[in-house]
């Protein structure tokens, strides 16, 4: 699976640098979007997976679900860091400042805080069912912020960020761009899944030792 993903990643990079035309208003900066959007997407998917696996643990008490929740959070943390940094650079290039608490920036930052808090909590507890239970409860509880982040926050602040991608209302994309973006999304989702499975196996093995 690793080799396929590596090939796909190289293909996406080649497409971004040699095929994608400069976007109106963004020029060649648009290349960064093909990294930023998929990474942010994977960060959100990881959050969902972490909460879902947490809920699964609470129902079934299976350590595999706990390992899944932890693995998703660890990888999600890496992705959310990449999304935050690439977003800040993008923001500097297009809006003139690294950070201005745009609603999307706030959302990604809250996600960063949640991942950080979840991993700190796990780090502060000895391995076992108690930690699994505590971590799962926190993953579920922090999930309560989702309606706020999605529906209310964008109304509190004015946003410069294009609306959620793919439908093309925010960022005007031609069909080539859209195709490359979708390929990049598939690629990064695949990378997430691949890392997630490796990480989950590792955590399970560590806990058994």
């Amino acid at each position: 699976m690793g080799a396929v993903l590596g090939g796909l990643t190289l293909a996406v990079v080649a497409l971004v640098f040699f095929v994608v035309p400069p976007a109106e208003g963004l020029g060649y900066y648009v290349r960064l979007a093909f990294f930023h959007i998929p990474v942010a997407w994977a960060a959100v998917i990881a959050f969902l997976v972490s909460a879902f696996q947490g809920a699964k643990y609470l129902r079934s008490q299976e350590m595999a679900a706990d390992a899944g929740s932890a693995a998703a959070a660890r990888i999600g943390f890496a992705f959310v860091l990449l999304a935050t940094i690439s977003g800040a650079v993008f923001s500097k290039l297009t809006w003139g400042a690294y950070w201005n608490w745009d609603p999307r920036q706030t959302t990604i930052f809250v996600l960063l805080l949640i991942y950080g808090a979840y991993l700190t909590l796990r780090g502060a507890m000895p391995a076992g069912h108690r930690r699994a239970k505590t971590a799962a409860v926190y993953a579920m509880f922090s999930f309560l912020t989702v309606p706020f982040l999605v529906f209310i926050l964008p109304r509190l602040y004015f946003s410069l960020h294009p609306s959620p991608v793919i439908n093309g209302t925010g960022l005007a994309m031609d069909s080539v761009m859209l195709a490359v973006l979708l390929t990049a999304l598939v690629d990064v989702t695949g990378i997430f899944y691949w890392l997630y499975r490796k990480q989950r196996t590792r955590i399970l093995r560590e806990e058994k030792e």
Partner: peptide, 8 residues
């Protein structure tokens, strides 16, 4: 633990 949850 508190800050992200209470932010809303």
């Amino acid at each position: 633990l508190m800050l992200p949850v209470i932010l809303p």
